[in-house]
Design a protein around this nucleic acid. Structure first.
Lengths: 360, 360
DNA sequence: ATGAAAGCGCTAACAT
DNA sequence: ATGTTAGCGCTTTCAT
């Protein structure tokens, strides 16, 4: 509380408590036995001196840092932020810190992260979110003894939790088909996006599957954005500009793009769902209030699950008990953005464009 | 790349290069001199062996961890995620890792974070985002020699960067008044919110200031939510339910709440901006596509600025050069959610309420 | 310009 | 149940 008395070490505590450093260590870490008497004296001395263990010294001596690295493509999207939040809660409860690596800035950063940053003994293990890791990236980590668990990425050789993206897309598309839509487009992801997704492209496959199963021709994967609202908005305007050729329904690969699309529709005077049905993926926090039909997943829980798996592996115990890979659950949530197609919309309707104001 | 050769140490590299460990350390850290010859041999050996410095050993020996702690009230909101993203970029460029502490789970966690986690020599310094730190929390950190910089919080005794929240609110409210509105409400923050803001309440003061300056009676601070879209939506419905008494304009303390309010308005059939003008704060990524008038701030840059300040302090150099505190810039961005009040709306219009949309 | 060697603060054998 | 002590892998004087 007062001015700095200088760094208090375990030796100070030992002296103050009249015991050895080993006893202090045992008491503080719950390692080994300790008589009630000494335990109490140690605790008191610790508190009195305001002592807190040096993480670096403890790490060096024990070989464990009690810190895990979480690698994400970016943080700005609700999905990734939620994953991190879920992982963080779980980790803190288990006594682990979380060191974050955001690959958004791309370029050589990614290499640095995998070649150096994660191998420096700063972390005991890593959670890779929505990342497609190269075999050498994985083995580079494993060779330093760092367990890795993947979430929503396509990573060979390590436990991975992922959505069945084909099924997700199929269900979303089938929902639209079931409502009677025929001209259904897909709003996908930029293939050349800086943040490599990989898995996500399967959402197009699932869409195409569902279309073919209904004897409809899947449209080519021509509309894609960067998974942001702004991206979805921009592509949405292109998608909807032709009142004749435009689709009556769109399956967007993420809620954020779907929301962008809905806003573009509003600005173009295209009524949702009367003239355009929209389905997304994620169940973003805005989806309920916006009435967006979506295939829900639970990013926060996913983060927690991945963290739990890693913790188990680090603890040594349940490593074998826990499953090596798991398909994460998803569920279609029908709201008001999807409905049966209305009898052919008169094209001139589509022209009362850009009136502004709130849709609805 | 291959199988694990076991942890490679600096001694291995030294042996391989035929030099001393001191030389390896000097070369790798750019500390001290080294002949081109040896430098090259060290680099080659390092690469050949796949050596990477142990962060814990380096920290212990040097007293510096090259890691900074970032503490946020939560991560789920766009604002905080952006701040972290901005800080992270800046930190990585300077060679610092970022360890994240999310206070969302509240309770004893906050105490643990400040009493233990941040003091364990795992971080060289901390950035506290939108936190009101108690004097003992600050001095607890400073006493272990950890510099702290605050962002958007109200922290005595340390460099702090913050918005002039009174001015922000005043300008937003003045904009509404300038358009001709009289019945202007404020949508503020929950006082009892788990994440202590502090500063944010000043947005009510600024609102009240502006009202009084125009000889209008500020409404009591009766409408408040938790800074989320869902919260804004829920309160919005209450706020707008009475078609007669409801305000013609609302200044919301954040864009996320403003967006919730706009969605509530849509669901109640209240047209924005014809029947209701809305102004927020932040310039959220959704604000532009939604047409939300707002007072922009730049969270990502703020994160970067705070990081830069901390890095300077850690570097020792510019610590004195950099300003001790700074008021962050803001700017009103007028979009389509605000306009002059239209001639008295017929009350029956307001009754085509709740026609659609899933509630939040 | 380079090497030898003394720690950094802790944990974990190993004794007792 | 408790104390002694040898490292953990690096950085950094201090010599040379």
């Amino acid at each position: 509380m007062g001015a700095a008395p200088g760094p208090v070490t375990i030796a100070d505590v030992a002296r103050e408590a009249g015991v050895s450093t080993a006893t202090v260590s045992r008491v503080l870490n719950g390692t080994g036995p300790a008589s009630p008497d000494r335990r109490e004296r140690v605790l008191a001395a610790t508190k009195r001196l305001g002592y807190v263990t040096s993480a670096s010294a403890a790490s060096l001596a024990s070989g464990r840092s009690r810190n895990v690295g979480v690698v994400v493509p970016r943080l700005g999207s609700w999905f990734f932020a939620s994953v991190v939040e879920g992982a963080q809660s779980e980790l803190l409860r288990a006594g682990y810190d979380l060191t974050l690596y955001n690959l958004r800035d791309g370029g050589e950063l990614r290499d640095r992260v995998f070649a150096d940053l994660l191998r420096r003994q700063r972390v005991d293990g890593v959670i890779a979110v929505s990342l497609e890791l190269g075999g050498d990236e994985v083995s580079s980590l494993l060779s330093v003894g760092k367990p890795v668990v993947g979430l929503g990425g396509d990573i060979a050789g390590i436990p991975t939790f992922e959505l069945d993206n084909v099924a997700v897309a199929r269900e979303a598309t089938a929902h639209l088909i079931g409502l009677g839509h025929r001209r259904i487009a897909h709003l996908g992801c930029d293939p050349g996006s800086p943040t490599a997704f990989g898995q996500i492209e399967k959402r197009y496959d699932g869409y195409a599957d569902a279309m073919r199963a209904a004897e409809l021709a899947p449209q080519p994967n021509a509309f894609s954005a960067d998974f942001t609202v702004a991206g979805g908005y921009a592509v949405g305007r292109r998608m909807l500009e032709d009142p004749v050729a435009r689709p009556t329904a769109v399956f967007a690969a993420s809620d954020e793009m779907a929301i962008g699309l809905m806003l573009a529709a509003r600005d173009l005077g295209v009524d949702v769902p009367r003239e355009l049905s929209v389905v997304g993926v994620d169940d973003h926090e805005l989806s309920a209030p916006m009435g967006l039909t979506t295939v829900a997943q639970a990013p926060e829980q996913q983060g927690a699950v991945a963290a739990a798996r890693l913790i188990a592996e680090l603890g040594g115990d349940s490593a074998a008990a826990a499953p090596d890979s798991l398909t994460l659950p998803h569920a279609l949530v029908v709201r008001t953005s999807s409905s049966e197609p209305y009898p052919t919309t008169a094209p001139e309707n589509a022209h009362r464009a850009a009136e502004g104001g709130a849709a609805g």
